[in-house]
Write a protein that binds this DNA or RNA. Structure first.
Lengths: 342, 342
DNA sequence: TTGTAGGCGTTATCAT
DNA sequence: ATGATAACGCCTACAA
């Protein structure tokens, strides 16, 4: 129904090959006059190439697969959702589109494999990575192009871009040290979480740099939830007075808000009696009370980097690039000078 | 490189037509024996059909376009992002994939038109609709298939599913009435916002049903932002004592949180001195203090409905369906009994 | 500089 | 019940 190249060729009185050459800007081969005739025919007919035909011919789709895990969405987790937006926007800049899909948390491979076998996409952007990530292993093994947002097992050779959690948390701790805090605690995830561990590294690093020994009781590991943030706070607050932290860094805004909510129940003034830092900069974190100091995920930058790498990969470049982007520290009201020791 | 139908045909000793018949389950035409031979050849070669070729042949893509506006993402607006997830999941159930893209707020048509002309997608799901929405008009005019999440100009004949804001707000007001509140204020968006107006309708409806006259000073219109929520609260609180509201319903969680933050500065206890209701159930709203009573966007249900309609549209059904889904009221700590009049 | 023609991998029509 | 074969719309040797 819509015009095809054949229609344009007839209209312009040339062959379809000529039309194709004009449309693809084949270097010095078409006379100015012919080119003009073709272009005017294209305009007259309102012709646009059928991308499916182009794709079949060129053996590609210009589509990049991006997936969400099907885990329950009861926690705020704006990061991945936001990333999808930035990724979509960045991809468009180089003529790529994002095809979204979802996968079961415990069995991700079939849907990835299907997309590969049917040649539905040219490549993937893998996010929400974990150590020993099956998807990454599968893609490496099958030699299918992809770039990841996030690290997996250290040593695996694949292209990734990730938030520099270590540097981020170190900056947060430096900020607290500068405010005079000395008893700084950290609430992290279980040991199986790679990014949680990188964040702990940043914590240790900054303290060591300042010549402060890490108090093992100041490091609490717990599962991601607001309730667990409250409980972690309670545990820290139950320490003997001389060990009680004056500041707490959490690996996520959600845990930080749990801490704040727990501290409120104890009558503490956040930003004065206790300083709290989160991680992620969830959209609402600027509006909670008090506004949360946190490390912002640099999503637009990461999306741009991922797409840049993808572009190279699709061209056929094979050397591996791994890159960290530092999250900016957003200082708000939840951190303040260390309280004067009683 | 990967096996084609021709390879399978050779392997099974049949024609490509036969392979195609088997794969497409053509009714009673293939002998059991041939079918088995073909299937075993398919398995042996690990063959999967090339979807691009299939698409070219069948003149379709099995792709649905879904877009975000490129407006700045400084507010929490989890709704659209979340919807993208649920839509993706629902689409997969009927073999459709979502292709995402972004469009400039003030000039959306070119990117939609391009996707149409290149036959990149079979249909669109249009979200974030507004009155007199250009995109909807364009799609109606061009006869291109789509379903919308959200209403536009009343009277336009197209398929949509939307949150029943009117019923939602009415339920919120009923909840407040049952708690003994009589001076209930509403903070809404400017008149240009259709959904804001539907929410006001629900507000009026519930009050009228209860025989309470609407005090015009209890209806404040303002632009979506936390700061404006604070200011709207301040304006309401500046009313003479006998007109001061004991409860405020906001058109969004963001405005509601602004109200809460404003009220805190005035020393009010939310849920006691003042009850507050939001709308959307942003992911963080359950964790702010006090936890926010709000109306939850029924996104999974809407996504399912949208996909169901889309399925009909793609089959060629032309009658228009328009459907509202009621948002459940989530009662939390920000609403409580009306304060005893001093 | 331009045209001819083959092929990308399917599906569908028409024979047999 | 199965097989030839012609599209689907485009790109690209190769020829002219």
């Amino acid at each position: 129904m819509p015009p095809t190249m054949k229609d344009v060729a007839r209209e312009a009185g040339v062959s379809t090959a000529t039309v194709s050459y004009v449309l693809n800007d084949k270097p010095d081969s078409i006379s100015e006059e012919t080119r003009a005739r073709v272009l005017s025919a294209v305009a007259r007919l309102g012709y646009t190439r059928n991308i499916t035909a182009q794709n079949l011919r060129q053996q590609r789709t210009r589509l990049i697969g991006f997936a969400w895990s099907e885990k329950p969405r009861d926690h705020p987790n704006a990061i991945l959702d936001n990333f999808a937006y930035y990724l979509t926007r960045a991809a468009a800049e180089i003529g790529l589109r994002i095809l979204t899909f979802t996968y079961p948390e415990n069995d991700p491979i079939p849907v990835y494999a299907d997309l590969v076998r049917t040649r539905r996409v040219d490549a993937f952007v893998v996010a929400d990575t974990k150590p020993d990530d099956e998807r990454i292993r599968f893609l490496i093994d099958s030699g299918f192009p992809f770039v990841a947002f996030g690290r997996s097992t250290p040593g695996w050779a694949y292209n990734w871009v990730d938030t520099d959690s270590r540097a981020g948390v170190a900056a947060a701790v430096d900020h607290l040290l500068a405010l005079g805090h000395e008893r700084i605690a950290m609430i992290a995830w279980p040991e199986s979480s790679l990014s949680g561990n990188y964040r702990i590294e940043g914590y240790r690093l900054a303290l060591e740099r300042a010549g402060i020994a890490v108090n093992p009781r100041h490091l609490v590991r717990t599962v991601h939830s607001e309730q667990n943030g409250r409980e972690a706070f309670a545990a820290l607050w139950a320490l003997p007075a001389h060990e009680r932290p004056t500041a707490i860094v959490a690996v996520s805004d959600l845990l930080a808000i749990g801490v704040i909510n727990g501290a409120r129940e104890h009558g503490l003034r956040i930003g004065a009696d206790l300083s709290v830092v989160g991680f992620d900069d969830e959209p609402m974190s600027q509006y909670v009370h008090p506004a949360l100091t946190t490390l912002a995920q640099p999503l637009p930058a990461i999306a741009d980097e991922v797409i840049a790498l993808l572009d190279r990969v699709l061209i056929g470049v094979t050397d591996v690039t791994q890159h960290l982007v530092a999250p900016p520290l957003i200082v708000r009201a939840s951190t303040g000078p260390a309280p004067v020791t009683a």
